[in-house]
Design a protein around this nucleic acid. Sequence first.
RNA 1: GGAGAAAUGGCAGAGUGGUCGAAUGCGGCAGUCUUGAAAACUGUUGAGGGUCACACCUCCGGGGGUUCGAAUCCCUCUUUCUCCGCCA
Length: 423
Amino acid sequence: MLQLQAIRESKNEFITALKKRNIDAEPLLNKAIALDDKRRETQTKLDSTLAESNSLSKEIGILFKTGKAQEANVLKEKTGILKEESKVLNDALTTVTEELQSLLYQIPNIPHASVPAGNTDEDNEEIFSEGDIPKLVTNALPHWELAKKYDIIDFELGVKVTGAGFPVYKGKGARLQRALISYFLDKNTEAGYTEMQVPHLVNEASGFGTGQLPDKEGQMYHVGEDDLYLIPTAEVPVTNLFRGEILKEEQFPLCYTAYTPCFRREAGSYGAHVRGLNRLHQFDKVEIVRVEHPSNSFKALEGMVEHVKTILRELKLPYRVLRLCGGDLGFTSVLTYDFEVFSTAQDRWLEISSVSNFEAYQSNRLKLRFKDKDGKRKFAHTLNGSSLALPRVLAGILENYQVEDGIEIPEVLIPYCGFSKID
RNA sequence: GGAGAAAUGGCAGAGUGGUCGAAUGCGGCAGUCUUGAAAACUGUUGAGGGUCACACCUCCGGGGGUUCGAAUCCCUCUUUCUCCGCCA
């Protein structure tokens, strides 16, 4: 959520920047300022009404104590009127505050200067690529065929137990999954991230804190009976660990990593691009989350990008890094880098990581602040990234490492798997 | 799931209708003393709104109510603890 003060100070810059998201923000921002003016005005009126009422109450107390009941009763009538007034004003304040709040929820974050304008993923900007695209054997198979051939992932079993998009990993497939999780967590730990195990269900307040609610309600599974949401990413529980906190400056940076399954309804997705592991309702992901001093958040973002690169380099997967354009940028993000691995057998790029800086947008919702040297409270910056999402990494490995008589295991994973080939 | 108890500032813990935004202790910060540190002593120390700055307003788990006036009384929800039951 944007800060009112920032909107007031930088309205024109915000309007220009939000054009990159193809949004005409001018009416929204003007309305926000107008509502805030109204809110302040109402608040001031209410305050002075309450102040008058408070001082009268004190007088009444004194009058009763000194036995002047008659005079007290005269004042009581006055406070009665003030009470009516303050009730009306209080209702008006509630209304305008809620209106302002829901308006602010509708305004996305301001894209960074480096974010290219654009509408779709076609307009994303490739900024880096690495790794050779392997020459595969003739009759190379896509991962869903390989999964069947070597009996390591069973999509039909998942359909039987739950439904489409809930695969069952079997034997070496399951072991490879577990190996990847351990490997990612170890790499993140090495890089200074503290491993956490967090709940896989969150309450409504957490959904609001990181921005999944109110907009993306339909993307999360909701347990109505207990009013809880299945997490779509570890970002939600991990970032919300710090909801409402006031940090000390010397606590920065806070760096955490967590493995969780992720649950996404993916309403409306269909077609060839969602075959196999390409798009699932439940998948595994290892996430990294940072809470940073505002002066360091972009440096931290670059550091996260470099960190993810080292992992892909070790896995020897061909990948590229994209800077997302305004139209593709997530609602709460200022700047996002997507990592894509090349799926040779499908002849397409698969997104495997998304690394973002949210600046103060989430912090404002979370009320995640720190005290600076002058003792002033300011919003911290939050960042997160996948390091990494499992299914498409797995797809990339299966497809790119396939040989005539099986699938080889990337060298760094062999100690984790306990085998070097799937056959 | 049943029965009971509780929820107060960073923490501990007073406060049961009227200068209570809240005693006291610990912790934090600043200072005195000291070569330095510790100890001791003195001062200071919650959050939000509002203001140029004050004033002022709101907040004692959340919401609602009674009252001129609520941390304090009533209703309700949530959470925690104890006991019983069930259970990986």
